[in-house]
């Protein structure tokens, strides 16, 4: 029996090694990325990147993490097996939002002041295409079939749908005031836009974009949104209420509000461990939320001014 327990413990720890889930948190103030093991809930590495990192995108397949350095006019490419920067891609302008196509072939980057979206080939970063989508592009997301890129054009109060092969604009969808973070449901049928100046989330039916989106009231100055894999709930960071709203999509209402650190920005799901991680810009930390309990279970100290704008969990 003792042997069995020991074996069980061994196999459990082995499987823990195999399924290590890492969160890459950009720290604007000290120009670093904190790498968190979400199961152990502690910092494993701190990686120096470019000036004022904001956005982040991860690729399990490529074993890469891409970080936008907004004041450094560059993208840092991290090798997730070595936890170090292996390449820096110069970007003329102010890169903020970043996302990777689900097929891992194209990296999309939003250049804040120039209103440009860059499409960069992950196999050859010198191969770059650009498109002008709308004023002050912020959040980006690509449909599960890789066909459509959605851009939150903050100062146009629109989400712009772009065909990824031709980089032509397909549709302009009016949302609330100052959309910043956007996300898709896992089936790609719904799009969620966080409207900073309206304190709302717009829910767009992608299968029928002529139908105006409905909106759900959240907290003060919301920034980012993510849907759970079952697509029954949304999680939204409220930067000026220091909280996360949990929305029930069936009733279209906020069902719980959880207090987190000061000025929460980026948030991502660890579906392996059923956790929600929230980067707190104001308190230099990450709040770890148990999704089932809807409760903050730990707070991890990170670097100065954590943002983590994008999908930052590698699992």
């Amino acid at each position: 029996m003792k042997n069995f327990v020991w074996l069980l413990a061994l196999s459990m720890s082995l499987s823990a090694c195999q399924h290590q889930t890492l969160a890459y948190i950009t720290n604007q103030g000290d120009h670093t990325v904190s790498v968190i093991d979400t199961r152990q809930q502690k910092i494993m590495h701190t990686i120096t990147v470019g000036k004022a990192p904001v956005g982040v995108a991860v690729s399990k397949k490529l074993q890469r993490v891409y970080v936008t350095n907004v004041e450094g006019a560059s993208i840092s490419v991290i090798d997730s097996t070595q936890q170090k920067v292996i390449q820096t891609i110069p970007v003329k302008g102010s890169p903020v939002g970043i996302t990777l196509s689900p097929d891992n072939q194209t990296l999309y980057v939003a250049d804040w002041y120039s209103d440009r979206i860059l499409a960069i080939s992950t196999s050859n970063v010198n191969s770059q295409r650009t498109v002008i989508a709308g004023k002050a592009p912020a959040g980006l997301v690509v449909s599960p079939d890789n066909q459509t890129l959605y851009v939150a054009a903050r100062d146009s109060n629109q989400v712009v749908a772009i065909d990824t092969s031709s980089l032509s604009i397909q549709k302009r969808i009016d949302v609330g005031k100052h959309p910043f973070g956007i996300a898709l449901s896992h089936d790609g049928k719904q799009l969620f836009s966080v409207n900073v100046y309206d304190n709302t989330v717009s829910v767009v039916d992608i299968t029928n974009t002529d139908q105006p989106p409905y909106t759900i009231k959240v907290g003060e100055h919301p920034y980012c949104v993510i849907a759970n894999p079952e697509n029954t709930q949304l999680y939204v960071t409220n930067t000026q209420d220091d909280s996360v709203s949990v929305i029930d999509l069936a009733t279209r209402k906020v069902i719980t509000t959880m207090n987190v650190g000061m000025t929460p920005e980026g948030l991502s799901l660890d579906t392996e461990n059923n956790l929600l991680l929230v980067a707190n810009w104001g308190t230099n930390s990450v709040s770890v939320i148990d999704i089932a309990q809807k409760k903050v279970i730990s707070t991890i100290k990170t670097g100065d001014k954590s943002r983590a704008f994008g999908q930052f969990i590698l699992q």
């Binding site: 604007q28 103030g29 004022a52 904001v54 907004v70 004041e71 102010s94 903020v96 804040w112 004023k135 002050a136 903050r154 100062d155 810009w281 104001g282 001014k305």
Partner: peptide
């Protein structure tokens, strides 16, 4: 618009 890097 405002800038992309808030200060504290």
């Amino acid at each position: 618009a405002h800038g992309p890097s808030p200060q504290k």
